[in-house]
Design a protein around this nucleic acid. Structure first.
Lengths: 226, 226
DNA sequence: CAGGTCCTTGACGGAACTCTGACGCGCGGG
DNA sequence: CCCGCGCGTCAGAGTTCCGTCAAGGACCTG
């Protein structure tokens, strides 16, 4: 879940933002001044900060600098000032975006999504790793590990394993496996399945002739068991 | 030097932007329609795109999607439309910022700097320096070290290595490598990959014919292993 | 304009992968 | 008892994919 820190000295605005963000299932912290903002950010490590510039205790740009001293978290500045000098100052201090009040909630949320989106690392879709007693499958890296070594799979072997693992322990029908791996017109070539399941077992199972994870359900299909 | 692509159908705006950007020693390309924008982006690989939404030949959001299909280059949208719906659409399609016309040049430049700044350093995974048993890659300095000496890489070799290293051990598909290094229309020219992978191995691997770090996964792609 | 670097392109041998047919085994039914 | 069926196993043929080399052309630099 994405964690947002909202900083504004106007309770009405904080309330409006918190309600809107929570409704979209963000996790929200809030602060009403610069010192509180820096403290909360350090304690909770938000994924994005929405920061009003007109705080009672310190200049908004100082808050930005305080954050930038130790984190690259996206900062979305909120301000009543339209003067371009203010904007330039805030942006050059390290802010990522600048929205003038009054703002449209739709727009603010869209800018927030944009800021969060580009902050997440490039290819990393969150490592999806599935472990069994005998081996480990990393769906994101397309890697299979066994006994401390990498196992090399051919494209077809990998594709087949992937469909089975994504099935999450449920039975996957032969026809479905064939269609997903070989294409829609291969729904009956069950011998392909036999050959490639055997190869997978040889590479992954401790005892290939008595598989514990790549299970045959006679007459129906196959199942991946952890 | 930072390379900017300016896209607008109004020559006056293009001229104003080009002059201002060149004066600040940016390298500037320009295009007047969506097709030209996509073509130029593919050919020149800009570091940031300034994109007008009101283009004659195609919808601006389509241009954004076209770019996002193969690159994460920052996109700064310029538009005469103030409606929040437009903004939300553009931002959710993958734009990084949205400025309404008429705009202040100071502000635009500040937003541009912000966009470039947060795109520059490597992802927040941490280390910009990646070490292997045989060589060291410094992603920030764009340098490769081996046996105490700098290794000289051509621009294409570096670009390819960079994409692989950024993958962080994950498999990178051939098509993705080709699109990121050579551009979106080169998705099938796999012979480029063969040639340049061989050159990288010759320069980096102890035994180029038995690579330990630049691994081929036949039929799927390549992987950088530390 | 000469020399160098870099990118592109084609060709070829060898390696890796997919497909295919054949055979064995266990099971249930004719 | 024999046969058909589904599944596992094996090995070889055919095809695709990869590494390597070398030549040509574009581009920059002095």
């Amino acid at each position: 879940m994405t964690r947002v820190l909202v900083v504004d000295d106007d309770p009405a605005i904080v309330r409006a933002l918190v309600i809107n963000l929570r409704a979209r299932s963000y996790e929200v912290d809030s602060a009403q001044d610069g010192a509180g903002a820096l403290r909360t950010a350090a304690a909770h490590h938000p994924d994005v900060v929405v920061l009003d510039l007109g705080l009672p205790d310190m200049d908004g740009v100082e808050v930005i600098r305080g954050l930038r001293g130790w984190t690259r978290v996206p900062i979305l500045v909120l301000s009543a000032r339209h003067a371009s000098g203010e904007k330039v100052q805030a942006l050059d201090a390290g802010a990522d975006d600048y929205v003038t009040k009054p703002f449209g909630m739709d727009e603010l949320l869209a800018r927030l999504r944009a800021a969060v989106r580009r902050a997440e690392p490039a290819g990393d879709g969150g490592d999806v790793v599935v472990e069994t007693a005998g081996f480990t499958v990393d769906l994101a890296a397309k890697k299979v590990h066994r006994d401390g070594k990498d196992v090399r799979l051919t494209p077809t072997e990998w594709h087949l394993l992937e469909v089975l693992v994504r099935g999450g322990g449920r039975l996957v029908a032969q026809k479905q496996l064939l269609r997903e791996v070989w294409g829609p017109s291969y729904g009956t070539e069950t011998n392909y399945l036999r050959v490639y399941m055997a190869q997978l077992r040889r590479k992954l199972e401790a005892d290939p002739s008595h598989p514990r994870h790549l299970i045959t359900e006679p007459g129906m299909g196959y199942r991946f068991e952890r």
